[in-house]
Structure formats: structure tokens, C-alpha cells
Write a protein that binds this DNA or RNA. Structure first.
Lengths: 228, 228, 228, 228
DNA sequence: GATGAATGAGGGTTCATTCAT
DNA sequence: TATGAATGAACCCTCATTCAT
């Protein structure tokens, strides 16, 4: 997709994003100490497995390999730990999304590669656990849900929208609302896999299964949006 | 869509389902006493609002208007109460899905009406709370997630698949895999709204918003699947 | 003091007070169950020994012979338990004060008996513990301090003031402000003992010691307030 | 009161006391470094406000402007810090008491001035906080209570006793036990104000209020102890 | 059958104390 | 010497569950 390296930026359709805008956080020595990361890792593990309410600070401390007291040196309380963790996850998700690079090949080939990568990202068991953890906590942490959505689904759509806008200019897509096209593309290529994963229903699809789904979706997508 | 009652089943494209296949339950006097229902209603309210872990049996008893002890007369423990509740929810969801009836009008009009109804069902705040509750508990109750998925998304797809199969026979859709078509249809018309609701992101879409989304989706769908 | 049983009330200089005005309290079956009392007794013991902050709910539960959970069935939290306890203590203190009855004998004899009883009441180790417990908590529970003061010192002074007012009418005391006289009387006869007890300084005075202190105080008091 | 510097001691009725008899302490560089004082000041502030149990070492460190670790360089543990603080307070109290100087004027005028000053000292909010702090901790630190009592009430009484003994010699007071007279004097002039302050009951008395109390007390005192 | 009092394990959090730097 | 990160015991409180009535 968009192999035309127009402009001096010399990059395809997505640019790296500089994560870590630097938040003020509790805890000693700056904001990103070894211990802090250690705790976040333990917390991620337990929160993913048990959800917000089900996760015990005791279990988190154990998983992180620190004492319970140390948890409270770095994070004010359970809520803050959870929110920081989500922020962290969100950052990783955004970074992963931004890492996609266009490959050599046709427009459809590029879309295909993106869709497959996106599916893999979304359905990775780690990521699904995070999503379930967030969804399960939306009622208590509404802001967290919105934040995560924006970092994930929305960000992916936005990146795609930009790419589609350029593709329309280039005549690779027929004139249309690129945002709607992006949503349709993602819906056709990912929603089936997403839904099943969300409910923990069935195993992860095989690579071949994903490819088939993506190809089917692309057929429908290109039938409408492709340049006749 | 397909108002022709062809064949011996004599109904349109969806038949009512007889809910309540009758499970064995712990409660007294059969399986569905007044009290039992009362408890399930209270439990639904609290589980939806707080999730599985966040819901206290105390709060459920209060919401149900019974004593805490009575809870344990009808349900072995919290887990069972939760599972029974999901079973119950699932039943209602299935019943609602089965209640869709074809209207007079074109094939596209029928699809449109179905999509709009489906969207409304999915994004009703009650239903979204249930979904979030289930998703949040998938890690602890894997079976519950699968059950819910089958009763909801999958059941909807299945109904649609049947209808599409007939539509292909009728020549209203071009020859294709009706199951894939059903997935694409649902993806195009519902996934955007679903995703946002799932993350509690933004208000519910307006009726006009839903119509626009459905119309956009139908355009894409019909461009590929429609009879030339 | 005031042996003249004037009026139909037929009682001496103090009337019984009806304690227990009936407060609304948490806990099952009314407000004065067996368990409730049991808990208050345990709490009294521990709070007296350790003060508010030093008392652990665990220790209170143990002292009361109930489980920790039961504490919270009867009292909302530690604060409320403490306050209810003080209210309770206050009630007992007031009742004890009101129980003093005039004896046969001279005015001075009656005063003497009252002072001795009062000293005993004040310096009983139980009561001193309560006072220390209250004083130590004044900074956190200002209302509790005031309440206790009114139930104790102030109530004693008030009763005495009434009696002195009648004594002035009767000509048993020279004309003066009876409230000031009451304060002076109590100061002369009790403050020395009080102060020492408050600081846990030295053993309790012997009965003879108390008598000597009271007699000394009475000499001074009568020299000024006595009828010529 | 007795401005006549009769006798070899050559002072009025009270002599300055040399505070700081020099105890062995844990801290570095002697016993009274800057840091040590800084810590004691922070500790005083927090202990007064929260009592022994309620005071957190963390809060003390913050109030003192040192790190928590430093606390343990100068004091073995919380108990010792508390005890040292009381010792310190006691010293200041004694010094304040010893600072009273007889003024020109009649015996009664001198007594009056002393009583007023004494009241002010006792009821200063700082001092009352200290007293409450000590009283609240008597059960855990019996020695501390006694120490404080001796430094305060008893020391005041002793000084007065000495003065009264001389006054009796001088014929300014009638022959009596000067110690009992001292107790009576203090009781009459200070106990009312003391009691109320102890229980945090009501505002501090106005200067006029104190004067009235003192005058009333003096009337009674002089009626008995004064030279006809 | 229905109740609600009672339980005790376990929840999140605080805090006096230690120790490597 | 002075620090502050780290600890774990103990704090107050909640909650799923039981049981006598």
C-alpha cells in the first residue's frame, strides 16, 4: 500500500510514534526504575488472569517478587497500580500498531499483510487477556475503557484512515469516506476473530484460518472500494 | 427478506425458540419458583454493575429482597448463582434474537430492519453490562464465555446463515458461502457500534447514527453479495 | 446535706436519673442485646488498657469472646464502637453520681460523705482508665471529651450546686454563688487525688488518706462558706 | 509576696533551676546536636497532635525535615524517642515554673500574679496537648506519667510550699501545714480551668475569666489561711 | 422454607524498623 | 552520618458461607 515514498520523510504509511510522554508518578528514583517495572510486570500477570477485583495485592507482590509494602512505595493504591498498568499496556499497544511498515507489493498485498499482523496482535493471548481485564473493569473505571479503546481500535482505524486518504488521492481506492472504509476493512478482516477471542471461545485461529478470513474480507472490501 | 413461506416449516426466516429447556436446579418446588426468579433478578442487577468478583452476596440479597441465607437455599454458592444467571441471560438473548420477524418489503429492507434491531439489542445498556460482566469473568469461567457467545453472536449468525442459504436458492443473493456472508454482514453492520459500547466509550449511538452505519454497511455488502 | 425533705418528691438532694434515652444503633435485635453488651465489655477492657489507637479490633474481639466479624455486625467501625462505649461509660458515671443519697447527720457530715464517695468513684482504677482513655483521644474525638466532661465533673458540680442553693436558702451556707461554692468544694476535696491518679502517679490513696484530704478541704471550705 | 530577700539564699521565693542535668543519649556528637533538636521538635508536634500510638515515624521524620533512617540514628526506637521527648518537655515545664519571680506588692498580690501565670502556663494549648499526650500514654508508659507529674504539678506545689513555709515564719500566713496550703491554693485557683482544658471542653478562658476565678479562689484561701 | 446472627479467612493498607549505599 | 528503599507483621474491615431457630 502506498509504495510512493512521497516527501522527505521517506516512510510509508505509518510513522513511529514516540511513546512515554512522561507522567509524574509516585515511587523512588524517577519514574521508571527497575523495581517499578518489576511490579508492573507482576501486576500485569495477575490482573490479566484474575481481573481487577479478583487480583489480590498479595498475589501481585508475590508475582513481582517484592514485598507487599513495596507495592505501596511505588503506587498509591490498587486503583493507581491498575491504571498505570493500563496506561503502560496502552503504550505498548500503540507502539505495536505504529510499527507496521508497508512492504513491497501491490496495494492489496499491503492491506493483506497489515490485516494479518493486526489479527495476530489482537488475538495474541496476552492482548486478549488485557482486553478482557479492561472490559471487565469498565463499569468501575470508565476512563480506562475509553483510553484503551482509543489506544487500540481507534488508533488502528486512524492510521488506516490516513493511509486510505492517500490511496484515494493516488487513485488506488475509489473516492469515498476513508474513515468509513477503514472501519469496514477492520470489521471484515478482524471482527470474527476478535469476537471469538473475547469470549474465550475456541482456540486461536490457525495462520491459515486467519489468511482465509482476511482473503474473504478483502474480496468484499475491494469489490466495493477497489478502483474498478 | 424472503417472505415466501416455502417448505413445510411454514414460517419466515426465523422461528420462535422455546426457551427453558429445563435444567436441574437446586431450589425448592421444581425449578422456577417466585423466589428463585426474584433472586436471579437481584443478582443480575448487582453482577452487571459490579462484575463477578465485585458483587457481594449481601448486596445481591438486598437487591433481591431476600435474606442472605435464602440465597443458599436456591443456589449452592456464588459460582453457581453466577452461572445460572448467565444461562438465564443467554436464554433471554436467544429468545430476543428469535423474535425477529421478516417484514413486508424488499430483501434489502428486511436486512436493514434486522441489522437495526440487532444493533439495538446489542447496544442496549443492559445487554452491554451483561457482556462486560461475562467477558470480565471469562478467565475464571471459560465455559460461561463460550456459552454466552453461542447464545448471542453465534446464534445470530446461524439464523442469518439459514436465511442467506434460502436467499441464495431464491436467487436473491449470488452463490456464495452463506455462513461467510452472514459474518460479513454482521461485521459490517454491527462491529463498529459493538466495539465502542464494549469499552464504554462514548454515548450510545443515535437512531440516525445506527441507520447511517447500517446503510453504509449494506452498500458494501450488497455490492459483493447482491445479485448483479 | 439538706435533710429537709421539702416538697412531695420526698427525696433528698439528688434524684435518680433515667438513663438510656434510647439511641438508634446498628446491630440486630433492638439495641441492647446480650452480644452487644458483651462486645462493649470487651471493648472497655481493651480501650482502657491501650487507648483508642492502641486497641486492636482483634484484641477486642478476643476479649469479648466473639469473632472479629461480629464486631462489625453490631458496630459500624472502630470509631463508632469507641463512641458508643464512651456514651455507655458516661451513662454509668452519671447514674453513679445520681445515686448519692443524703444521710442522716449534720450538713458537714453529709458533705463529707459525698466527698469521700466522689473521691472513691473518681479514683477507682476503672474510672481513671476511662478518663485517661478519653483524655488521650480528645484530639481525635473532641466531642467525646466534652461529653464525658459534662457527664462527670460537670454533672457532679451541678448536683452540688442545686444542693448548695437550697442550703443557702436554709441558712446552712452563707449567701454566695452556689456554683462557685460547688467548684471550690470539689477542688478542695478531690483535685489532689484526681491529679495524681490521672498521671498514674503513686498508688491509690488509702481510705484514711482520703478522709484526711477531705477533712482538710472541708475546714477551708466551711471557714469561708459556713454560716459564721 | 515576700520580697524580702532574707536569709543567706539571697533569692525571693523561687530560684532559677538549671535545666538539662545531662542524660546519656544515643545520638552522635555529644547529646544535643542540631539534628537531635530538630527531630525532637518534629516529634513534639506530631505526638501532641496524634498521641503516642497515632503518631507515625514517617510523619515525625517529615515534620522534623530529616529522613526516617536518621530518626534511628539518634533514637533507638519510637518508645525512646517518646520518652526523651517527655523528658525534654518536662525540663521546659520545670524551667517555666522556676521562672516566676515575685513582684513588688502585697502577699496576696504576689499570690494572685503567680496563680494567673500558672493558669496561663497550664492552659496554653501546647501544654494541654502535651498533658493529654502523656495522660493517654500512662498505661503504656507509667514512668512517663509520674515523671511528668513531678515536673509539673508537684514541682509547682513544692515551690509554693517553700514560699508558704517562709510566709508562715514571717507571719504572713497563719500557722499550718504549708504543703496542704499549697495544694489548696492550687486547687482553688487552677483546677476548674485545668479540668475543662483537659477534656478539650470549651474555649480557653479569657484573661478576665481567669482573674475572676483566681480572685474567688483567693478569697476562700485567705479566709482560712490568712493572718486574721 | 426462610431467616439473620455468627464466623474467620483474606482483602487493601499502614508502619516501625532495617540496611546497603 | 544520612539516606530512603525495602520489609513483613499487624492494622481495620469485608465477605462467602454456615447454622440454629
Amino acid at each position: 500500500m502506498q509504495p510512493v515514498p512521497r516527501g522527505p520523510r521517506g516512510q510509508g504509511w505509518m510513522s513511529k510514534v514516540s511513546a512515554r510522554p512522561g507522567e509524574t508518578v509516585a515511587g523512588p528514583e524517577g519514574q521508571d526504575s527497575e523495581k517499578r517495572r518489576q511490579i508492573l510486570d507482576g501486576a500485569r500477570e495477575v490482573f490479566r488472569a484474575k481481573g481487577y477485583e479478583g487480583a489480590a495485592m498479595d498475589a501481585i507482590a508475590k508475582a513481582a517478587g517484592v514485598s507487599k509494602g513495596t507495592l505501596y512505595v511505588y503506587f498509591t493504591n490498587k486503583d493507581e497500580l491498575f491504571e498505570e498498568l493500563i496506561t503502560d499496556e496502552k503504550r505498548e499497544l500503540a507502539a505495536a500498531l505504529d510499527a507496521f511498515e508497508p512492504t513491497e507489493g501491490s496495494f492489496r498485498d499491503n492491506l493483506r499483510a497489515f490485516a494479518i499482523s493486526f489479527n495476530e496482535l489482537l488475538t495474541g493471548e496476552n492482548h486478549m487477556s488485557s482486553i478482557r481485564m479492561v472490559v471487565g473493569a469498565v463499569e468501575k473505571f470508565p476512563a480506562v475503557g475509553a483510553m484503551f479503546f482509543r489506544a487500540g481500535a481507534e488508533r488502528g482505524t486512524t492510521r488506516l484512515t490516513e493511509a486510505f486518504a492517500r490511496a484515494i488521492e493516488d487513485g488506488r481506492l475509489k473516492p469515498c469516506d476513508p474513515a468509513v472504509a477503514a472501519q469496514h476493512f477492520i470489521a471484515l478482516c478482524t471482527s470474527e476473530v476478535m469476537k471469538k477471542s473475547l469470549f474465550g471461545c475456541g482456540l486461536r485461529p490457525t495462520p491459515e484460518g486467519v489468511e482465509r478470513i482476511v482473503d474473504n474480507g478483502l474480496d468484499v472490501f475491494m469489490a466495493y472500494y477497489g478502483r474498478t
